[in-house]
Design a protein around this nucleic acid. Structure first.
Length: 285
DNA sequence: CGGTTACCCTGGATGC
DNA sequence: TGCATCCAGGGTAACC
């Protein structure tokens, strides 16, 4: 479920509960989700360790233990954290217990698609992240984005969702960003004109920032904040989940469709505001 | 190599 | 009500 804004919201929620605190224990309830060490090793390394920082890299949650290593949690589709539940929530896969005050922090994941990674130090974590990711979507520069989009002839939407191109964008925010930039999702990435890349780049940060301010996008039984609350983004967004409703730009009904290269995932677009064909150049230089 | 698809999992919603 | 089917925000291995 979570994309950059949801992961950022999780991290902001976890920080006050975890940073500077000493762990009493870490219990993994599903060993198959852990990579990089055994559950016994994870437990042993966490006992008595102090959490020196909680951060985000793309869609990764990074929990840094002082002088001990790092735990990376990838929520993927259905993972999330819970604090201060009266009772243990469902589908708990990893439990952190704090030494004092006595409290639990749960990582839950109904579909168990999430991953928990152990790294011995920040260098190893950085290297692993860099192997699979481009620059963070909130930090990427315009020219860097342009160069990366130039390298592929895929449709621009799957390119935006490719974490190696830039890190943090998934299905919901790709549609929002493409709508804001008035680009059809099937436009060939490498054929975008400089002015179109300008629009795309200019849309990324405002869309993600707005979503972070809303504490992410919740629907059905999916993502919640660490307090179990719904994020508010889908009450203010333009595209995702709004099939048939009027486009905020022109009033035409929003189309829900599928595009090649993104099997099984819905794409929302405005056929009027996001023309399918590359606009003709006035003159070929 | 670049691009596409299958598949990993399961719960909840929808339809018959 | 009960059962089958479909759907889902991510990521990667395998394939063409």
């Amino acid at each position: 479920m979570p994309e950059l804004p949801e992961v950022e919201t999780m991290v902001r929620g976890l920080r006050p509960a975890l940073e500077g605190r000493r762990l009493a224990s870490a219990e993994l309830h599903d060993p198959s989700m852990l990579l990089g060490c055994t559950s016994e090793e994870l437990a042993a390394r966490c006992v008595g360790a102090v959490v020196s920082g909680v951060g985000r890299r793309g869609k990764w949650v990074v929990v840094e233990l002082a002088d001990a290593g790092l735990i990376v949690i990838q929520p993927r589709m259905t993972g999330g954290f819970r604090l201060v539940e009266p009772d243990r929530p469902g589908h708990v896969r990893l439990t952190f217990r704090l030494a004092s005050p006595d409290a639990s922090i749960w990582f839950c994941d109904a579909r168990r698609l999430g991953r928990i990674l152990w790294f011995d130090g920040p260098e190893q974590a950085d290297a692993a992240f860099a192997r699979a990711h481009g620059p963070d979507a909130l930090a990427i520069g315009r020219d860097d984005l342009a160069a990366r989009l130039k390298r592929t002839r895929r449709a621009v939407k799957p390119a935006l969702m490719d974490q190696k191109v830039l890190a943090g964008i998934g299905n919901i925010y790709a549609d929002e960003i493409l709508f804001e930039s008035r680009l059809h999702p099937t436009r060939v990435s490498a054929e975008l004109r400089p002015a179109e890349v300008d629009r795309l780049h200019a849309a990324i940060r405002p869309v993600l920032t707005r979503a972070i301010e809303a504490e992410g996008a919740s629907f059905d039984a999916g993502y919640r904040t660490v307090l179990g609350l719904e994020g508010g983004f889908l009450a203010v967004n333009s595209m995702y989940g709004r099939a048939g409703r009027p486009c905020k730009g022109c009033g035409a009904p929003i189309l829900k469709t599928k595009i090649p290269g993104l099997i099984g995932r819905p794409t929302y677009l405005c056929p009027a505001c996001q023309p399918e064909k590359r606009p003709r150049a006035r003159r070929d230089a």
